[in-house]
Design a protein around this nucleic acid. Structure first.
Lengths: 239, 239
DNA sequence: ACAAATACTGTACGACGTACAGAAGATTGT
DNA sequence: ACAATCTTCTGTACGTCGTACAGTATTTGT
């Protein structure tokens, strides 16, 4: 064993902390989008030479991963542990919280989808979701599958939502984005796409909170619904 | 009006086509991942100077967008138009087809989530899904919402699946990826995360076809399930 | 034959991630 | 107290990226 607790090692004191770098990165991400969050930009903002960042993180991918973890850590799971609250409410609140936290930093969402979500906070989220789901009587196996289904839905919604606004670093208000979609969708030719043309109004709201909640409730309905026996089409498809 | 059909304009004949460039890009994407699909790499592969690519596309973003459209275009929607087939089967087959087409090019999936999916093929997919859903008796409004729910689920699943494997340009076989996840998840501490630790086996299969189909069926169950009246928690949440 | 329009090449710029070498600073053993 | 040692940072540099600019070659319509 080496020295059990090394209070300090020889060498100058660090001018920064990992947190300071992450804060700076998040600021840059919010102000200028993904392309502004460069190693050189981060270094400039915290006032060091570009390569000094490599003292704190081995490479840029590590910074990105840490940012993702940092953001997931902002979600206070404990709030949703109260078993007095109906379980659907707990999940809906957790999903909304996640959506708010993440859409506040659109640039970071793309980074999140760019790599595996293995970190401790991602695991904690899984544990929290499973905890709520087993309370409903689901078996651990089904609870895990349902937890992932919810994760896929929430993160998929968020990813498609921020992607819809393109490279913007700060999402415009929801009403504005819906109006922009409305304008774009008004050009749908009714001859070739009658259904979409008729539902253009609804489609403009694909990225709305209302659609998010609607879909979430359908997912929750599906999780609790009795299985449909004749719907097992596995054999027909994998032939 | 200018000349209605300009067969050819002055200037040398083009040495390439947009399709050739897209093919080359897709090849590079498959061989070397996102970072290999550079303008310079594409140009080298088709045998021109880097900036010659700008004759066919205004910038790299346009190439990316075209790639996404190209991939979506590979999905043959017409196959799923047959109303004789049960609607759940049609949607499941369409979802599986999409998943297969897209996971075949993991590098392209990240690009897809990076920008809005406005193209004609994305719209065609929406129209196709709505067509199947209105066949079940859904109103056009609900059909649109349900179509987007399905899109979110399918693309979210795919995005998380390819993200789980990191930067690999070609996805390893499913069994291999599951085993890798299993190994990683075996380190979950049972004291702090008892549920996850107990369900590690199921969690390893989060990226499996089985989980994909399980979730899809739950979503379909949710879409067809009778609404749960007391589950309307909107007021409690938006207070 | 000539002028106009187009497709390409050559070159170059700024920004990126990051490797390498060296200088400055803080702690340790003596 | 001093020197050895280890760490943190700076300076510099390399290779790669997207792409702007100017020039050259090729095809067309007149």
């Amino acid at each position: 064993m080496a020295s059990p607790v090394r209070r300090s090692r020889p060498g100058p004191r660090r001018a920064l902390t990992q947190e300071e770098i992450l804060e700076a990165t998040l600021d840059l991400l919010d102000e200028g989008g993904m392309k502004a969050a460069s190693i050189r930009g981060i270094a400039a903002r915290v006032g060091v030479a570009p390569n000094a960042v490599y003292t704190y993180f081995p490479d840029k991918a590590a910074v990105v991963q840490a940012i993702v973890e940092h953001l997931l850590g902002l979600v206070d799971h404990a709030v949703f542990a109260d078993r007095e609250v109906p379980w659907r409410l707990r999940i809906e609140a957790l999903a909304l919280e996640l959506r708010e936290r993440l859409t506040a930093h659109p640039g970071a969402v793309n980074l999140m989808i760019g790599g595996p979500m293995n970190g401790p906070h991602a695991l904690a989220l899984n544990e929290r979701l499973m905890g709520i789901l087993v309370d409903t009587g689901l078996t651990p196996g089904d609870a895990a599958k349902a937890a992932y289904l919810l994760i896929v839905y929430v993160f998929g919604s968020i990813a498609l939502e921020v992607a819809d606004s393109g490279e913007t670093h700060r999402l415009p208000p929801e009403a504005e984005r819906i109006a922009a979609r409305q304008a774009g969708l008004s050009a749908i030719p009714a001859e070739t796409h009658p259904l979409s043309a008729a539902a253009a109004g609804t489609m403009a709201g694909y990225i709305s909170t209302e659609q998010f909640m609607w879909g979430l409730r359908k997912v929750l309905d599906g999780i609790t619904a009795a299985p449909i026996p004749e719907a097992d089409t596995t054999k027909a498809l994998t032939s």
